[in-house]
Design a protein around this nucleic acid. Sequence first.
DNA 1: TATGAATGAGCTTTCATTCAT
DNA 2: TATGAATGAAAGCTCATTCAT
Lengths: 201, 201, 201, 201
Amino acid sequence: MLDVETAPRSRMNKDLRREAILTEAIRALSEKGYHGFSINELARRCGLTTAGILHHFGSKQGLLIALLDMRDRLDQQAILPLLAPEDRRVPSTRDSCLTTLRAIMARNAEQPEIIRLYAILRTEAVVPDHPAFTFFRTREMAVLNVFRDMVSDLVPDPLSTARQILALIGGLEMQWLRESRIFDLVAEWDSAISKILPPPS
Amino acid sequence: MLDVETAPRSRMNKDLRREAILTEAIRALSEKGYHGFSINELARRCGLTTAGILHHFGSKQGLLIALLDMRDRLDQQAILPLLAPEDRRVPSTRDSCLTTLRAIMARNAEQPEIIRLYAILRTEAVVPDHPAFTFFRTREMAVLNVFRDMVSDLVPDPLSTARQILALIGGLEMQWLRESRIFDLVAEWDSAISKILPPPS
Amino acid sequence: MLDVETAPRSRMNKDLRREAILTEAIRALSEKGYHGFSINELARRCGLTTAGILHHFGSKQGLLIALLDMRDRLDQQAILPLLAPEDRRVPSTRDSCLTTLRAIMARNAEQPEIIRLYAILRTEAVVPDHPAFTFFRTREMAVLNVFRDMVSDLVPDPLSTARQILALIGGLEMQWLRESRIFDLVAEWDSAISKILPPPS
Amino acid sequence: MLDVETAPRSRMNKDLRREAILTEAIRALSEKGYHGFSINELARRCGLTTAGILHHFGSKQGLLIALLDMRDRLDQQAILPLLAPEDRRVPSTRDSCLTTLRAIMARNAEQPEIIRLYAILRTEAVVPDHPAFTFFRTREMAVLNVFRDMVSDLVPDPLSTARQILALIGGLEMQWLRESRIFDLVAEWDSAISKILPPPS
DNA sequence: TATGAATGAGCTTTCATTCAT
DNA sequence: TATGAATGAAAGCTCATTCAT
């Protein structure tokens, strides 16, 4: 019997393999959402079997959880230093706010796939039995709190302002994606935030 | 044996039936998105067969199209009068802008399921082969245009302002859904729009 | 494209199809038991798709239930007349007992597959979460009651006698199956029952 | 990071481990039969990997064979002394028969799981391609022979009597299991055997 | 205006097994 | 003495769809 193109059954280091899978999973998930994507297709894209995927993550849901865990770690690593470069305290001057938020937007603008991933999961996850429901609920409350503290010395309504900032981030990113990124996301952000945090007269 | 316990076999008027199906479809779609929902389950929820659904809409995609058509008509009916009550021209004073936008938000706040429907479809539809891709692309460009014209006499950067308005609408609605509607969406809107369209000094 | 042996998609009457499936299911189940048999293979043996089977019975468990229902009806039809030919009252003379039991054994001897079906399901079903647990529990209690009433005028310990009769039926049938039916089941039965219900001296 | 929470990693003696696995296997097999049980689940219950199980027994079938071997040895050890306490010859008086059989039943009554194991395997194994087919065929012929010799001086039809004894053992045990062991198996046995081996008048 | 039978493709998951470590 | 990665096959089941009635 001819050995017709049986893949070399490449044996990989555990962490490497997991990471490779999760990277591909981001693409798949960001295209179809949790309900729409299939680990079958993911496996194909990764060059291994469905059973191979499940060997690493146990179940479709397990895969999602692992993915969110990883993203959380990465985001934490990237955002925390921004929030408090030297003394790790939440910033409070208008300038530091602007710098921080701008940095966040600039970073996001470089990974549109992640934006799309979060956009779709976050939206799916408003219904309570979605496996990422708690994740996004918790995360967005935390973000809201950080933003609120960040602007607490600058505006009379810190929570509402925090909501507006969060809304604008998500909303502008969405438009940016829909319009195939033809406009300058960071420039648009600057325009927006300047109205929410107006310069001291 | 007599056919005693067959369901009422509601032989319905065609249009009524279609509408009933679409109403149920909104719930299903808003929970799982286009990829995640199934016409099988929809049929069950409607009390008819999968083939019955298909009889009316031809295919899953046909159902979505029909649904978007219907929503478009309804939205048009509701929004157009708001935009130009007496002379159907786009308004331009700050007050009329605020009134219009407030009315939109107030209306949305009364139909959270529709909000969720649009939120999820809009997000799924950023990828070009989604059946609602064109719909949302077109619609959001149109909305952006309307908003831009609406504020063209009030701000120096009408398109950016339009973007910010659109972003805030979507973003605040999303927070509102995620937090189980515990805050006052319209009040939050008033706070937000007052920063985007500041009162003349 | 060549139409390579696509089966004619034979469209059958509902009840006929169900019966055909159930008949095949008996063979499959009697060979492997509920856990061991697969509706996949059953479908193949029936010349239709797995989905086709499930269209009729909903699930593997549904199929088993339907099968047991059918068997119950058939057995009732066959056994009841035996138990009380003319007046439908439970018999009580030794002769009528012997006649009845002999008829049961003779009937069983003609359908070894059914014997094997019951043997395996009955055994699997001693564990409470088996889908046929209740069925066999109920059925055997009923049978025990019938036997007990049947012999109540003939022996001092009717329930124990009933147990012995039931045990002998099942046990001898099992030996008969294992030994490829090389001995005469009915003759062996006669020998056995004559010790349990000895002739009046 | 220190490898803090790794399980005790019980590096076990080979024979001990095999025995431990087989003990768990009895539970699993007695619940689902050979076709229904899975070495995956067995592994989980044993606290080791599927590959771990396979390391010891080679294959699922190998495991079953090993299990039957072990049981055979244990049963032999327990039953042989009963059959011929002092001179290892088959007993022949009615009293010694009764004693022996009673001892067997008493022993069985103490290990219901084993009863269930044999019940299900024995039943599955009537079909010739079952891996335990030969085992049970051989074993039951042997048992039948022993019983026949045992009663050869007491009854006119020793083989039939042997069949009846074997049938009653299995049948009463089955009822006992199904009825959650609420009746006294040994007492019921005494009643049954007294009819098969009636006291000399 | 719908249903009912049936399908092909796909889903998530489990299974027994192999092989290198 | 075991594990860990990986697989091919199969499991039960759901999906969207077709077609005759």
